[in-house]
Design a protein around this nucleic acid. Sequence first.
DNA 1: ATAATAGTGTCTTTTAGACAATATCAC
DNA 2: GTGATATTGTCTAAAAGACACTATTAT
Lengths: 234, 234
Amino acid sequence: MRNSQWSPGSTALLPAVAVDLVVFTLIEGRLQVRLATRDEEPFAGVLALPGGFVRSDENLDEAAAREFVEETGLARLRTHLEQLRSYGDVARDPRGRAFSVAYLVLAPGVPDPVPGTEPARSRWLPIEAALASRLAFDHAAILRDGLDRVRGKLEYSSLATAFCPAEFTVAELRVVYEAVWGRPLDPRNFHRKITGTPGLLVETGRARREGPGRPATLYRAGLVNTLNPPLTRD
Amino acid sequence: MRNSQWSPGSTALLPAVAVDLVVFTLIEGRLQVRLATRDEEPFAGVLALPGGFVRSDENLDEAAAREFVEETGLARLRTHLEQLRSYGDVARDPRGRAFSVAYLVLAPGVPDPVPGTEPARSRWLPIEAALASRLAFDHAAILRDGLDRVRGKLEYSSLATAFCPAEFTVAELRVVYEAVWGRPLDPRNFHRKITGTPGLLVETGRARREGPGRPATLYRAGLVNTLNPPLTRD
DNA sequence: ATAATAGTGTCTTTTAGACAATATCAC
DNA sequence: GTGATATTGTCTAAAAGACACTATTAT
């Protein structure tokens, strides 16, 4: 593609700009990240974050949303999408100078895997396995930054609700925290803390009966999205 | 400049990539930001953040550091520099597609202004004045984001020490918080909180006598840079 | 009835914030 | 001395975290 805006006389560097996505979801109570096996050089056969080049007629957020749909095949509905940070080291792409704007994406309601299905080119990987895998380019650093962001943001925001379906129980929300932080939380203190923050959750009036035990109240995410005082990881 | 890495057959968009700097300092106990009057179109005569294009042989952090020195004339020593976020809306630059990676820069020890000096093309502006001014491109949004970042990060980090000289008193550090947050803090509770976080500050053994009153102990920034539990703004 | 999960109450420890009291200086 | 700033101590209210207890279901 010819560059139609910046004249050859300009002093500006003209690199490629891509978006890369750190897409998290919860499957079977465990935090999972979306990775795809590359089928082209460089890094053919190596796992990489989903992503692609930004087009000339789209904003960064739009490029991230488009790549999310293209690469995961999931519906854009109810996904949380926020910019993470940018990566632009001179040598990060052996093909030449390339910038990447990374996005953090949280996708709720991903279908459970069908047992016996062979792993496709693009698939979900538990976070521990992803961190231990070799990733293409600087994607290991990007994944690390995305994980740090989501872990930190659960402390002081309602971000955890982005992992849940439209209606959810306090226990489901607690499982999100436990999966992301990798440690158990006291269900009773968690319940008091979450329901005690005005506006964070809205009762639907209905309840869900799931196996034995008292039915759990169903909530929707409220308009308040700051958790003050915060939940602490320690 | 010819683009030497991405062939014309590539599908990648080739835009210009710049760094823009939100440079804060404290002058006369007030938070100030560095702005320059543009002398070229577009936005000739309008205030803008310092910044410039990334060169082909430098990383993003290096470009930010270089632009800081070039545009402010200040020494790079003891400045804090961290990436803020990136901006890439299709229409953000009327000359064509352009991305900007914004950086937050904290510069300590800026000399007090000489009264009677006419304002130069590049100068410090109190934050309230800067927020009320018309800024070029999307620089008002970038400034806003930079201010939010520094305000938020004072709560849970040692970032405020980046506004101070190498050795400073607890009162100097408190003035930083008061200037950035725009509200007074109780000197006694602040002192107890800051000095009670192990590793955050290191006593130099010396003290500073400044006018009347008991001399203040001089500290250096310690190795710990997380404030736990945090200071709250409310 | 029993086991399981949801939700409330109670207690102890920690922290925030208000503010009294003391320490050490310039004048 | 007086006035100013630094630093420590004390008190109260709020919150965290541990955990007993009650509520409501499936079996």
